[in-house]
C-alpha cells in the first residue's frame, strides 16, 4: 500500500515529458590539449554517449547521447575524475516540450529528474539549458557562487520516493 502510494505520488509530482538533448561539461584542473584528450577518451568510453565534441580552449565538452539511452550524470562525473580532473560545471540541454513546469515540483526529462530552483510557476517551452547547482557538479568557486544565493541550493542530495536522484538546477 505504501509502495503504491509512493508510486502514485511520484507519478503525480513528475511534470513534463521533455527530452534530453545533450550535456555540456566544463572540466577543471587542466589547460593542455593532452589533458583534454585524456578527458575525451575517458568520456567516449561511456556506453550512452554517442559523440563528444570538445572546445580545447574553454575545456568544455558537449556530450550527445545515443538514442533511447539511460543517461547517468554520476558516470559522467566518474569518467572525468578517472581522467585525473574534476567537473567544474555541468549543464543539461533539454527540450521541455509543451508541458507546464511548477516550482517545487520535480520535472522528469528523459531518464533524469530535476528540481528547478529559479523557475517559479512557469510554462517552459522548447529548449533550455539547466545548470546543476550541487557540489558534486561544480568547482569550489562556482559552488560558493550558487550557495551564496540560496541556502536551499546548498542542501544535501535529494532523492525521489523511488530512490532516484533529483538534481537541483537553475535555468
Amino acid at each position: 500500500m505504501k509502495t503504491a502510494f509512493f508510486l502514485l505520488l511520484t507519478f503525480v509530482s513528475l511534470r513534463g515529458l521533455g527530452q534530453l538533448k545533450a550535456v555540456e561539461v566544463q572540466v577543471g584542473g587542466l589547460s593542455c590539449a593532452l589533458c583534454s584528450k585524456t578527458v575525451q577518451k575517458s568520456l567516449e568510453k561511456i556506453s550512452f554517449i554517442g559523440a563528444v565534441k570538445p572546445d580545447l580552449n574553454s575545456q568544455e565538452f558537449r556530450l550527445v547521447f545515443r538514442e533511447n539511452s539511460f543517461v547517468d550524470l554520476e558516470q559522467i562525473k566518474k569518467q572525468v575524475e578517472d581522467a585525473g580532473f574534476s567537473v567544474a560545471r555541468l549543464q543539461v540541454v533539454a527540450d521541455f516540450g509543451d508541458v507546464p513546469v511548477e516550482s517545487n515540483s520535480p520535472v522528469k526529462i528523459g531518464s533524469l529528474q530535476f528540481q528547478l530552483m529559479d523557475a517559479g510557476a512557469n510554462v517552459l517551452k522548447g529548449e533550455h539549458t539547466l545548470t546543476l547547482t550541487e557540489k558534486d557538479f561544480l568547482s569550489a568557486k562556482a559552488f560558493k557562487k550558487y550557495c551564496g544565493n540560496s541556502l536551499q541550493k546548498c542542501s544535501a542530495k535529494t532523492l525521489s520516493p523511488d530512490g532516484s536522484r533529483i538534481y537541483k538546477v537553475v535555468i
Binding site: Q26, G28, G29, L30, S31, Q59, S86, K141
Partner: peptide, 14 residues
C-alpha cells in the same frame, strides 16, 4: 598517490 586536488577552470593546486 595524489592526496589533494583543488581544481578550478584552467588551474589547480595539487
Amino acid at each position: 598517490y595524489r592526496c589533494l586536488s583543488l581544481d578550478e577552470v584552467h588551474r589547480h593546486f595539487r
